[in-house]
Nucleic acid binder design. Structure first.
Lengths: 309, 309
DNA sequence: ATTTGTCATAGTTTCTACTTATTGCTGCCA
DNA sequence: TGGCAGCAATAAGTAGAAACTATGACAAAT
């Protein structure tokens, strides 16, 4: 096992450069004997002479020359470690793994990634799109760094930061556009089409309707909001859409979209990460960036008006 | 200025590999707190967190991963330093710069270099052929590692090792082959052709003749033994040749070669190096190899017989 | 609620690396 | 040739780093 120290290498490098113990010691801001001893120690550990000590001058041995070359390489690498650390302190660096739920992903992601690429050049972004429980698991395991989900998740080891609230909107066949918006309780008497089991958005919708879980129209669960809207378009029933999805999903289906009356159904989208995550500071900054993305998205789409197709 | 120590990197690498402070500490044969403290110190110096400490397990941070990769590189390089040292301890390694005088070089060098290449694979041999004073200077300056010259050189800072003795032989035009070999004192009454000023062989020959230095036949000094022999061949005079040169130089000239009567003129060829040279041990071994080369060369050429062309 | 596993902290001790002072060697110069 | 000057090695003492043991704190598992 090598017992060489960096000090020894630094001292040796100085000595090689100056060719003089005293001046090298000065350069290292230590006394000449200190340097002498470290060099001797280094030679001992190597079992080889590095320096040929003449009375009037010293000279690197053949091996010393070869050694010095490599040592310089090593010292440079070590210095670079420091640089790397400094760079990483400044901001996000390397890889960032984001988890995100499917009912948010398609609408928010493009904007987020765009902004991220712009703010953090050279950041390698991985996205994991899956259901909340999986995201929570993966976050715990350290397979992702943060996740965008509906709050609350109530994991005590996670930090939660709210990003925005979004309303649920009623999507009906376009023929129903002029009908009055039904009360929540009446929804489950209509054919309410929902995402399949496991999506938090399904549970949120159900809870808004005041229904526990079981439902009559089995077999009609959709695997994506897009599918649901298409189904509504051909008259199979009605569904709910999160505000953010409306613009995209209703573009190519003849459906009408309406706000519910107060109290409107709503959900909170937020970001979570491990409390112990060393990225905490950066993630908090990131959450601000995501909030901005959502805001700008919303104003683009003009959500104050009731959109009808 | 980086104050990172080598220990810290080793400890960190172990920690990264084991993912566990206790086990990493065991692997490093130290206690767990010792390792903890060094890791903390490392993080302090970097100003960055490397390890995310969970209650039940630890995990490298994003930066920690990147850091670990570089650290492994560095550790490997340092280990290689040790290997390099070990390799160089075994024998000659890298570059060997040999100086040699012109009246020996052409005859001995081919054999030496052959043997050297065979004994020390990967040894980078540089040869410097010049006059003794220059060689001594360059040896002092460390521009060559050793030199093969005629002894003694009497430099107190050099080690001298005798390699072999060689006789001087008389070279006359082939017509003179049957004439008796003249006494030394009579030589300078013949046209004695010698090397130009500066060659030690010239001085040796003159001293054999009992002559100080000045000579009547100026303008006929040769710059190489080969030239001298050619001059003898066309009847311009006689010359002396070191034993070792005879076979090569008299091959293509119609000259006769004769031994002097006892006491024969002779010179000692030897190897010298700085007493302070760290290669001393290897050079001593090398001198043995050179001695062998000279011996085998001599027996090949059958120097016990008086060679005549 | 208790135990267990794991890392951090505290207090001590041992070792390491530094400092100053001095010696020893070598070459230079008078 | 003898003394001086330059330079590195050695000696002795001190300060600081890094190690150890013991203990604490905290979250997870039982």
């Amino acid at each position: 096992m090598t017992n060489i120290t960096f000090k020894q290498l630094r001292y040796f490098e100085a000595l090689a450069r100056h060719g003089h113990f005293g001046r090298a010691a000065d350069a290292c801001a230590i006394s000449q004997p200190a340097l002498s001893m470290q060099i001797k120690e280094l030679e001992n550990e190597l079992g080889t002479i590095l320096i040929e000590r003449g009375a009037r001058q010293i000279r690197l041995t053949n091996f010393g020359e070869a050694f010095a070359l490599r040592v310089r390489d090593i010292l440079r690498s070590v210095d670079e470690l420091g640089e790397l650390a400094r760079a990483s302190r400044e901001g996000l660096v390397g890889r960032l793994r984001i988890g995100i739920i499917p009912t948010v992903a398609p609408y928010l992601l493009p904007t987020i990634i765009g902004k991220l690429n712009q703010s953090y050049k050279d950041l390698d972004i991985h996205v994991r799109e899956t259901l909340t429980p999986k995201l929570i698991q993966e976050l715990s395991d350290g397979r992702i760094d943060t996740a965008i989900v509906a709050l609350p998740v109530s994991e005590h080891s996670f930090t939660e930061v709210g990003l925005f609230e979004e309303n649920f909107m009623l999507v009906r066949p376009s023929d129903d556009a002029d009908k009055p918006v039904p009360e929540a309780e009446l929804l489950h008497e209509m054919r309410l089409l929902l995402l399949e089991e496991g999506h938090c958005f399904r549970d949120q919708a159900l809870s808004f309707c005041g229904v526990a879980s079981a439902r009559p129209w089995d077999g009609l669960d959709g695997s994506s909001l897009s599918t649901l809207v298409q189904m509504v378009g051909v008259g199979l029933g009605v569904t709910l859409l999160p505000e953010m999805a409306v613009a995209v999903e209703t573009r190519s289906a003849s459906v009408s979209v309406a706000n519910f009356r107060e109290p409107q159904p709503t959900r909170t989208i937020g970001m979570i990460w491990r409390k112990s995550s060393p990225l905490s500071v950066q993630l908090l900054r990131l959450s601000e960036l995501v909030r901005q993305s959502a805001l700008s998205l919303r104003s683009e789409q003009g959500f104050d008006t009731v959109t009808t197709h």
